[in-house]
């Protein structure tokens, strides 16, 4: 399902008092896509959202919307609506008037407003709340009002700035489902900002991983998880073992004092690399059958699996997730397949 591009950023940079918030970012978003900007706080994801929403102007580069440059179009003239971080509901208006705000600005007929608002209330499951004071609503309900208030304007793109951050875990899971359903139902492009990698993986069509104002990787959740392009992405998305290695030749890497076959090629001979191995890819086996050996240092039962730390002969600590376990102090072997060894260019100095 490839559709046309709706938002495109080219070479966009943004500085706050000489501190770069975004540097030379290129990104495009397709129609009807659910795109998530993911990264630790201060990585520039919110800045990117605010540039697209029109609350900030880029210092360099262009932002186009349906092919037209919108760098200097103020937010009230963009066909983009935002769900704000702390909702930013109008406390002087009731639920109905909050949702109707954008329609009233457009001077729509009262009957049309009534109809659209009640359809939205239905969509977000808040029928009967029309007259309620927004301050009397729970966090989850306020969240729904904020979403309805933005969606009722039928934007081409909906921007969501960490909209679920203030909700408790259970409510957050529920809202994730509902948001995803809404997006499918309405066929609107969603651009979602979060620092929660699980949220990003479970909801998005495309995930954009950011760090220090730069895009690290763009891809489907599966691609990002299985094929992280560097150690940062690997570490940020799920847990990983990251160790130093040397690429002896194509498909052969040395780390932890052993040579391993791997699936990567194209590095220089004897190039220093990061070797990334997911904890669930390390399999427990008898020590004499494995190249990697170590002593179990700790065992934690996490429900579905055990989390173990195994200390190798050279002192490296390996994080292992397994449904089996060995008691602390046991010598174990750790098996791994060539496919599970991810070789990455060093990014850290």
């Amino acid at each position: 399902m490839v559709s046309e591009i709706i938002v495109q950023l080219k070479g966009v940079s943004k500085y706050y008092d000489d501190t770069p918030a975004l540097t030379d970012v290129d990104l495009y978003i397709r129609k009807n896509e659910f795109v998530t900007l993911l990264g630790p706080s201060g990585c520039g994801k919110t800045t990117m959202l605010r540039l697209i929403g029109g609350f900030e102007k880029p210092d360099t580069g262009t932002i186009t919307f349906n092919g037209q440059d919108i760098g200097n179009v103020p937010s009230h003239k963009r066909k983009v609506n935002t769900v704000f971080q702390r909702y930013a509901l109008f406390s002087h208006l009731n639920v109905f008037e909050n949702i109707a705000f954008g329609l009233r600005i457009k001077k729509m007929k009262e009957s049309v407003i009534r109809e659209k608002v009640s359809r939205m209330l239905e969509l977000v499951n808040l029928q009967g709340y029309e007259k309620r004071d927004v301050n009397s609503l729970s966090g989850g309900q306020q969240q729904r009002v904020a979403i309805a208030r933005a969606l009722v304007n039928e934007p081409d793109v909906l921007l969501l700035d960490e909209p679920l951050a203030a909700l408790d875990l259970k409510l957050r899971k529920e809202m994730q489902h509902e948001l995803k359903n809404m997006q499918r139902q309405l066929g609107i492009t969603f651009l979602f900002v979060t620092h929660d990698q699980e949220e990003a993986l479970s909801m998005s069509d495309t995930v954009v991983v950011m760090k220090d104002g730069e895009i690290q990787q763009i891809g489907t959740p599966e691609m990002i998880y299985n094929e992280p392009v560097n150690a940062f992405v690997a570490d940020f998305i799920g847990e990983s073992n990251i160790v130093d290695g040397i690429m002896r030749q194509d498909y052969l890497v040395e780390f932890a004092g052993n040579l391993f076959e791997c699936a990567d090629s194209g590095f220089a001979r004897d190039e220093l690399v990061d070797v990334v191995i997911r904890p669930e890819d390390l399999a427990l086996m008898p020590p004499d059958q494995a190249k990697l050996k170590g002593v179990v240092r700790s065992v934690n039962f996490l429900g579905v699996h055990y989390e173990m730390i195994v200390e190798g002969a050279d002192g490296t600590e390996w994080l292992v997730h397994s449904t089996l376990m060995e008691p602390v102090g046991t010598m174990v072997g750790l098996g791994l397949e060539p496919m599970d060894i991810h070789i990455m260019k060093k990014v850290r100095a």
Binding site: G54, P74, S75, F84, Y87, A88, A150
Partner: peptide, 17 residues
Amino acid sequence: DKGVVEAAGDLGANPFQ
């Protein structure tokens, strides 16, 4: 909240509105 002012702009209100 500055967000409220931005939200109004986001929903199509010009500065006077």
